[in-house]
């Protein structure tokens, strides 16, 4: 098959994918989105003849628009525009999970400092303030006191971008010092790991330590439901253990997997490429030609 890989940086994740694709004899067209133009009617030459595009854009804005253009050109892309649209926005993510009946932390948004303070007081301390767009745990705040809440809201209100004035308030989930990252393809887990830290943020990007995790049936059920809720694809589903159950706090659509690949016995890039081959096959209606 011929795969187009949208990128702006080749991280170790992309390098693992590129190596696996090339070793299997697939043709790969690396498409640096920074150098491209996307016309509303005509696709760029760089995507001529590709069977499938893999979106690995680092910037959410580029990912959101480019996947929409690919949809318009009728070129199969993973993840699709709908999935990207839901996953890139924490509000849409939370709404989708709630609508699908997937346990997710209680969340409210408010548009002013006063109304956000009301929500925070109602949720009690600690609670969590998150940016509606963002990742790697940046600008997340665990709010422990009213005075801290007021200060954080005031700072957010002056950050400039309108999205920072959408105050996303979430209940604080007492997790056992770790959360669970599941890499899944259309709801089927490839592998899972725990991310542990003494810090309340356990993201691998924040330096949390990782360890392979064996999923039970309930976790698998929730991963499948969470994946369906956002439109499926190659996803990172984040769960927290709540004692008797799990809660899904987020589904990520341009998921990094290098830390997972190091932590587990599964050959993660091989499993991802297996899935890409099946997607290309579905899209073209033929065997993924090498």
């Amino acid at each position: 098959m011929k795969v187009g890989l949208l990128y702006s940086r080749i991280r170790r994740d992309e390098k693992l994918l590129l190596t696996e694709l090339r070793e299997r004899g697939h043709e790969v067209e690396k498409i640096d989105v920074r150098a491209e133009q996307f016309n509303i009617a005509e696709p760029p030459e760089s995507i001529d003849g590709v069977d499938l595009v893999v979106d690995r854009c680092l910037a959410t804005s580029r990912s959101l628009y480019t996947t929409q253009f690919l949809d318009a050109y009728d070129i199969p892309v993973v993840n699709g525009a709908e999935t990207a649209d839901i996953c890139a926005d924490k509000v849409k993510n939370s709404l989708a999970l709630e609508r699908a009946g997937v346990p997710t932390p209680n969340t409210e948004i408010a548009y002013t400092v006063d109304s956000a303070m009301e929500t925070i007081e109602e949720f009690g301390y600690p609670c969590v303030l998150k940016p509606v767009v963002g990742s790697w745990g940046r600008l997340m705040a665990k709010v422990e006191t009213p005075s801290a809440a007021e200060a954080i809201l005031e700072h957010k209100a002056t950050l400039g971008h309108y999205q920072h004035k959408v105050f996303y308030v979430q209940e604080f989930v007492e997790k056992p010092g770790r959360d669970i990252r599941v890499l899944a393809v259309d709801g089927e887990p490839i592998a899972a790991m725990t991310r542990s830290s003494d810090h309340w943020l356990t993201n691998a990007a924040k330096g949390g330590t990782v360890e392979e995790f064996e999923l039970d049936d309930r976790a698998r059920e929730l991963v499948a439901a969470a994946s369906d809720a956002v439109g499926g694809g190659l996803l990172g589903v984040d769960l927290m253990e709540t004692g008797s159950d799990y809660t899904v706090h987020e589904v990520n659509h341009t998921v990094e997997f290098k830390a997972l690949n190091d932590a587990v016995d599964v050959d993660v890039p091989a499993a991802v490429v297996d899935w890409l081959e099946s997607k290309a096959e579905q899209a073209t209606g033929t065997e993924a030609a090498v």
Partner: peptide
């Protein structure tokens, strides 16, 4: 540093981290 060419090998300072990057 970003690899901008491999023949000849050329490096440039990589762009700064942006707000909407990563997952």
């Amino acid at each position: 540093l970003e690899v901008v060419s491999v023949d000849p090998i050329t490096l440039e300072e990589a762009p700064e981290l942006e707000e909407d990057w990563g997952e």
